[in-house]
């Protein structure tokens, strides 16, 4: 279990990262926290010719709050976001979901953008990004673009990122007043990837449910006002619309059933929280 050989680019600036990406394209992988990539290197599932270190520049390790968003640079570790003062009030969903990501020891190095880039269908941070309708900021040497979360994630470990693009940051909207958030997840053990993870967001505008771990990407559903009557039917339709699969940890039927049950649970929690905020 030792990695194959690779060249290593230790950039001194963002520009150098982008230059290296242009030069090496799909032969290269960005390495951020390495908490996903290094296991893959060790197992030789991944054999990039070049690694470009995107997690060592202090410039890129900033969390900025602007225009109702938390903009998180690509060198920001998950622990750094977790420890952001007042994260619970800035974005309760993140505060509730982050403790489910692996363990203290992996969050100390794993980055937020790395998790987005990797697009694991069970991962919490992509799920939150979709639930909150956040954005991904991509940049090449030539151009920068911003993609909505729902357009970014295409499938299992597949995103709309082009090989020469760096995810330079992601933006999570901060909590609007009067909005309720809830998050729940079922894994086999503490710290494991979710079998099913659900997030609900409720406000005067309506209720949404986002489900991760079941389909190839986390998927978000608008439930209108999310009224109690008809909720079970809606959740049943959601459960069936997801392309659930059997694996060694749980059956597809289990994933659907948990989607229904936990879905209902978080929707009620989020609505209750929204009601509390409004009153």
């Amino acid at each position: 279990m030792k990695p194959a050989r690779f060249s290593f680019v230790r950039p001194q600036s963002r520009q150098e990262i982008l230059d290296a990406l242009t030069e090496h394209g799909s032969d290269a992988s960005v390495i951020a926290g390495g908490q996903t990539l290094v296991p893959m290197l060790n197992m030789r599932l991944a054999r990039p010719k070049v690694l470009i270190d995107a997690a060592r520049l202090p410039d890129l390790a900033r969390i900025e709050e602007e225009k109702g968003e938390l903009r998180i640079g690509c060198a920001v570790r998950q622990a750094q976001l977790e420890q952001l003062p007042n994260l619970v009030s800035k974005q309760p969903l993140l505060a509730r979901a982050i403790p489910f990501i692996g363990h203290v020891q992996t969050r100390a190095r794993g980055t937020v953008c790395g998790s987005i880039a990797h697009a694991d269908p069970s991962a919490e941070l992509p799920l939150c990004l979709i639930a909150l309708q956040g954005k991904v900021h991509l940049r090449t040497r030539r151009k920068a673009r911003t993609v909505r979360a729902e357009d970014f994630f295409l499938g299992m470990m597949s995103t709309g990122r082009e090989p020469d693009e760096l995810i330079e940051a992601v933006s999570y909207p901060t909590a609007a007043p009067g909005t309720g958030f809830a998050f729940q997840e079922i894994g086999r053990r503490h710290g494991d990837f979710a079998i099913v993870a659900v997030a609900a967001v409720a406000s005067g505008d309506g209720v949404s449910l986002t489900v991760g771990g079941v389909d190839d990407v986390a998927r978000r559903f608008d439930l209108g006002a999310g009224r109690d009557d008809g909720l079970d039917d809606a959740l049943n339709d959601i459960a069936w619309s997801l392309n659930a699969r059997d694996d060694l940890h749980a059956s597809a039927a289990y994933r659907r059933e948990i989607t229904r049950r936990l879905g209902s649970h978080v929707i009620h929690q989020a609505k209750a929280e929204a009601a509390r905020c409004q009153s």
């Binding site: 290593f8 390495i31 390495g34 908490q35 290094v38 296991p39 270190d53 020891q105 100390a108 190095r109």
Partner: peptide, 14 residues
């Protein structure tokens, strides 16, 4: 901070 030594590459350790 506690971290996995097996998930750090020598080149990153600089």
């Amino acid at each position: 901070a506690p971290a996995r030594a097996c998930l750090v590459l020598a080149a990153q350790a600089e």
